[in-house]
Amino acid sequence: MRSFLWALGLGLVGAGLVHIVIVLLVPVYADHNSWARVTALGAENQFHLLDQAGPADQRRETDPLLLRAACPFDLDNGPVRVFATGSVPFWSLSVFGRNGENVYSLNDRSSVDRRLDLVLAQPLQRIELEKSSVAQKTDSIVAELDIHKGFVVVRAFVPDESWRPIVTSFLHDAACAVTEP
């Protein structure tokens, strides 16, 4: 009996450890995470529309009235300029790290003339950018991010069907290219 209680006690302590290890390792080993999903859409430094009519597990936690586009990037190749032309009722964006963590977000009210014009840069790249003349000539917002690989997700509101083509081309034509400091 005593040995059984021993085994039970040891087992419960072990179960606690196994529980903690699994929960902490899930983000490391999850193969359907957001990074895998976004990079499966296509090449780096290009926006890809996230399909509204895709399979169920890709539509979960999405808003039917907002269209989304994602662009994977690698800041080690240089600062990335996220840029779109055209006017839509509302846009917002989030920058995620490789691990799917939201590191920066912005909406059209926080930007000049509601334009989407943002430069993502690592701390050292930002210093270079500020020294250069490019930053002084443009109204780009500069976001300092301490990440390497990551992706931007831009969302735009479709108040009714007449807006759909306009919002689609806004997202489709959005750029996310490496820019020289």
């Binding site: 899930v26 999850a30 939201n102 969302r155």
Partner: peptide, 20 residues
């Protein structure tokens, strides 16, 4: 950690605080 594990498993793209 639980919320993180779930976000990773679902591949969700949650709204940032400036978005909504």
């Amino acid at each position: 950690p639980y919320s993180r594990a779930r976000t990773a498993r679902e591949g969700a793209l949650p709204l940032g605080s400036a978005e909504g």
